[in-house]
Amino acid sequence: MLPGVQEPGFPDTLTFESETPFDLRFPAVELLQANVARMLHLLYGIGTCRSEQLRRQGYETLADLTTHPQWGEGARALLETWGSAWDAEAVFRTLRTWLPASDPLLLAALGLVPRERILFFDLETLGLSNAPIFLIATARLTDRALLVRQDLATSLAGERSLLTRFGRELEKTTALVSYNGKAFDWTLLRERSAYYSQSLPSVEIHADLLYHVRRRFVGLLPDAHLGTIEENVLGVRRANDLPSSLVPSFYSMYLETGSPAPLRPILDHNRQDIESLAVLLRALLGEATDAA
């Protein structure tokens, strides 16, 4: 049998937890703030030319700009939405308006989010759309480790529990990290929540690493599959890995036969996926700080 725990209140599921030492440093908050503060073009109406102009006039930061006759009001309003403590969500909202989703700053800016409020996630489902979710993996960072949790539905009746549990996690989350999550995982979560008439808390910040990988490695790699990235960038080699295309049929087999044998490879594959997600973020951050 599998070494999972049946959590009370979440019928038809099994939970698997693990903790691995993991070191991930974000750029220092002060450094981030200093960089963002210099981005005068975050103000509507100021582009590259104008910000050059303003810089020559001595306006280096947004704080400086608050004294400007024309732009002062805008700068003050913007800094107010960010708050004196630089609320991560407000800052991201501004950054997202002007930066492409693949901009490295959007990854570095995760450093503004309290560490424990970042959630990595990955799903396993029976299909690409309108299909039940049977496994949700989530991971959080502690100071020195990565805490991985996998919630597995032991029958399809468990999908509801998975969604409820995930919803609880979302309430404690400010930023999500995923791979192709914006197009796939999050859409499917919304769909399945609607299917069970359950609400799904929204999360303001979602860093989809696929965008960053594409920007960073386009032309250098044959494709952007996580496996390709693992091999070529992260130096991760999986042994006897179950190909993701077989995951749905393995789970179907489990449903039909009741034998848990097909589940082990699914869990291993899925855990590797989420661990690689964290490793990938670290690698991209390394690139980002280099670039900055």
Partner: peptide, 20 residues
């Protein structure tokens, strides 16, 4: 044929191919 599973919420579709 393995297309439906019964759950407390009702019968849900679990075919590998989209029903529609």
């Amino acid at each position: 044929s393995g297309l439906l599973s019964d759950t407390p919420s009702g019968a849900i579709y679990r075919g590998l191919r989209r029903a529609h």
